[in-house]
Amino acid sequence: MSLHLQRDLDSLKKEILQLGNMVESSINKALVALSERRPELVEEVLQDEIQIDLQEVSIEESCLKVLALHQPVAVDLRFIVVVLKVNNDLERMGDFAVNVAKRAKELSEQDPIPCPAGFTDVVPQTIRTMVRDSLTALVKFDVDIAREVIHMDDVVDQANRLMYKDLKALMVEDSSTVDRAVSLLSCSRYLERIADLTTNIAEDVIFMVEGEVVRHQSTGL
């Protein structure tokens, strides 16, 4: 195979993994800022966002370069198409992390309310795993890992429902907490969206490897 193409594809894989790391780190910081009330982390997240945007642009340019210079076909072509979509998804995940961080800042300036357990253990853990595994599946062309990521979405959905129940109970109990509880609800929704985006990534990986479009199917895979 052409050395140039191999080299460019390898470098593209490195870049997308770097972006994945950056986004994962942003999400973690945002969640820690939220659960431990640390507004200084919020600043870091906002700074990281700039870097994430730059990396996204760089990856898109690299993809265009491979398409123009090498005219890839078959699996290589599908890989490039998937990378472009994943690139987009990761950047949106970064945006959601920023949204969570902003809410965290607001909440840190107000009196604390009890934070549902989901925000500190299950959800961050699961989301971190999903991000990491979906990108591993991408660079290793591993369909089994991708399918596991799709299953893990259920865990996040479940945790999300529990957090909703807790916050609803809190709001009913003490109506002065409504503002803060609603902010937390928003964060919960952002996290669910992040998990959905990693599921998209996993579905794209299955398309890339098997050549079949598997989107928009029920979770009965």
């Binding site: 195979m1 076909v73 078959a74 699996v75 599908r78 050549g211």
Partner: peptide
């Protein structure tokens, strides 16, 4: 054939892997 070939040999040839 050029987006999703059925045979692995075809894919190997058209992507230049041999």
């Amino acid at each position: 054939l050029f987006t999703n070939p059925d045979h692995e040999l075809t894919e190997a040839y058209i992507t230049g892997r041999f």
